[in-house]
Design a binder for these strands. Sequence first.
DNA 1: TTGACATGTGCGCACATATGCATTATATGT
DNA 2: ACATATAATGCATATGTGCGCACATGTCAA
Lengths: 134, 134
Amino acid sequence: MHTPRQKAADACLAAFDTEWFKALCEPARIEIIRRLVLVGRADIGDIAEDLPQDRSVISRHLQFLERINIVSVERVGRHVYYQLNGPALVEKLETVLALTRPLVPFCCPGPENDTVAALSDPGAMKNTEEFPHG
Amino acid sequence: MHTPRQKAADACLAAFDTEWFKALCEPARIEIIRRLVLVGRADIGDIAEDLPQDRSVISRHLQFLERINIVSVERVGRHVYYQLNGPALVEKLETVLALTRPLVPFCCPGPENDTVAALSDPGAMKNTEEFPHG
DNA sequence: TTGACATGTGCGCACATATGCATTATATGT
DNA sequence: ACATATAATGCATATGTGCGCACATGTCAA
């Protein structure tokens, strides 16, 4: 059996891609992204230029960001140019948002929200008194 | 001096709140969120019921999520009821998305995008050939 | 081929954190 | 007061990971 609530709960796993969030929870990686926005496109040496970390560390961060599809890479000669994949970033955020919106009606307890009818009934969402209070 | 590109770069720091992303990069916490959607509202004991972790671990995760404003808490007697803060979650995602969209035009290298005029000129974004290439 | 340059990788260290157990704190009920 | 129930906290530990160093890999220019 799959109630709307159960479907919504399972949607959490699709919405919250932990690997993707992990990529954005590290200040060093955000700094790299910031520099990419600043210069548009650059090789690892230039990106690591004004950053405190070692080149190899920046290289690994960029590999991670590329694997998650947050930056794109282009190898030319001995240089490896990285670039922020803005469209993919926006698209991913839009997907997460689209998957998260349907969760809101289920934040409140009670079985009323398990029916699709409750989704269009604002009055069904203000029940915080009669449920548990064991 | 503050070029549009520099402003966009600085917007990264506002858009990508690493603490908030950290909250969502842990599978155990996503599982907790999933259970909250499933039951709507519950105390720690019920939330931890079918989860492999110890109650104390679940308690700490919930404290973290509450500090980041992803869940809301209500203490009644000796019970502590948690609930997903769906509206806050959606609002945060909308904010991140709104701050991220303006970054897209700056993903491409070159100074053309440093002028506001470039934002409304689609033709200015297809320069990937004449910039570095050592 | 040789040397210089840009990047990738193996390894170890230091620190963060997720986890479980034991204990304590707070509230409830008899 | 006492026992019980629920949650929070202190502590130890295992795992994860950011980091730098040394070295390997690969490329370009002589």
